[in-house]
């Protein structure tokens, strides 16, 4: 155990953790929203993220963007981001909505038991991952280096990089926007109402199918944004099974924060990201994925409903 190393690298580990955690949080939103409304763990959500990544990659390739970030002027960087985010968010949202339409809605109309939904979710996840796997020959694809990470400002020992600032800012903005939408808009109230009491919502004139469509759409958009941000990180590689680990972690983050709770997703994501990176400092990189799930299990022993523990319906979002 390398306590000195953790202390030495504490600022960097924290910031990297927040950066990665922010992305977990964005993906976690999709799990939490769908769970809040349908009480369903949409395991195929990890593939929604993966497809967003490939959509951005293929769009960039199609448009002939170069891999060299250093030479690229700001204008072409912004254009690449804009194109990338439209492609990723669009493809992810479309995937999410299609999964709902093709896999879950028919089950809902037949009043299928929860187990049928569960196995369908797992099945949809496999179909999408394997489909892309076959199509891409299961190879990893390096993402265009849109941005060279560099320190943009320093506060004592805390060095903030451009990617960290972008990822964290975008995530917080997306969170605030969603929070406002859910708590203030008419459709947002509809989402909360269905999450809380579907029958009474129907008595109010809420169209449940539309609300369900909406949460898949929002979850997909957020996963697409997350996919793009993930690609901006130095890790950026697209692979057919990339969704698995991130999806699992995002799901863990959602449970950690209290599944069904939007703010819980943010809290859980950030916490998980930071904890993982402290584990890297303490025990080495190999322990990164181990620690996240130990954290989850231990926390659930003490707070079975997660940190914030309320449902989407009850949350004064």
């Amino acid at each position: 155990m390398d306590v000195a190393g953790l202390l030495r690298d504490f600022p960097e580990l924290t910031l990297t953790g927040l950066e990665q955690g922010a992305i977990y949080a964005l993906v976690a939103l999709g799990y939490t929203l769908v769970y809040g409304v349908l009480k369903l763990i949409n395991f195929a959500h990890s593939e929604v993220f993966m497809i967003g990544s490939f959509a951005a990659l293929w769009t960039w390739q199609g448009l002939g963007f170069v891999y060299d970030a250093e030479a690229a002027p700001l204008g072409s960087f912004l254009l690449a981001v804009l194109v990338g985010v439209i492609a990723a968010a669009g493809a992810s949202a479309l995937t999410a909505v299609t999964i709902e339409r093709v896999a879950y809605r028919p089950l809902r109309k037949r009043n299928a038991p929860p187990l049928a939904f569960l196995i369908t979710a797992i099945g949809a996840s496999f179909v999408l991952a394997e489909g892309i796997g076959v199509y891409t020959h299961r190879a990893p694809y390096g993402m265009p280096r849109l941005l060279q990470p560099e320190v943009v400002f320093q506060l004592g020992g805390w060095k903030f990089t451009n990617t960290q600032l972008i990822v964290i800012t975008v995530t917080l903005l997306a969170m605030v926007a969603l929070d406002q939408f859910v708590s203030r808009s008419r459709l947002g109230r509809g989402i909360r109402a269905v999450a809380q009491d579907p029958d009474t919502s129907a008595l109010m004139g809420v169209n449940k199918d539309r609300v369900i469509f909406l949460v898949f759409l929002i979850g997909g958009l957020m996963a697409g944004v997350a996919a793009l941000l993930w690609n901006i990180l130095p890790i950026g590689v697209a692979k057919f099974n990339m969704g698995f680990l991130i999806g699992l972690k995002a799901f863990a983050a959602a449970v950690l924060g209290g599944i069904g709770n939007l703010r819980g997703a943010l809290l859980g994501g950030l916490l998980l990201g930071v904890a993982e990176n402290y584990a890297v400092g303490l025990f080495g990189t190999d322990w990164k994925d181990f620690v996240g799930f130990v954290l989850l299990v231990v926390l659930l022993m003490f707070r079975p409903t997660g940190l914030l523990g309320e449902s989407l319906g009850r949350a004064r979002a």
Binding site: R189, R192, A193, Q196, D197, T200, L203, G313, R316
Partner: peptide, 11 residues
């Protein structure tokens, strides 16, 4: 107005 407490308790 449904039977029982049909209000949305979190609202």
């Amino acid at each position: 107005s449904p039977e029982g407490r049909g209000c949305f308790p979190g609202m």
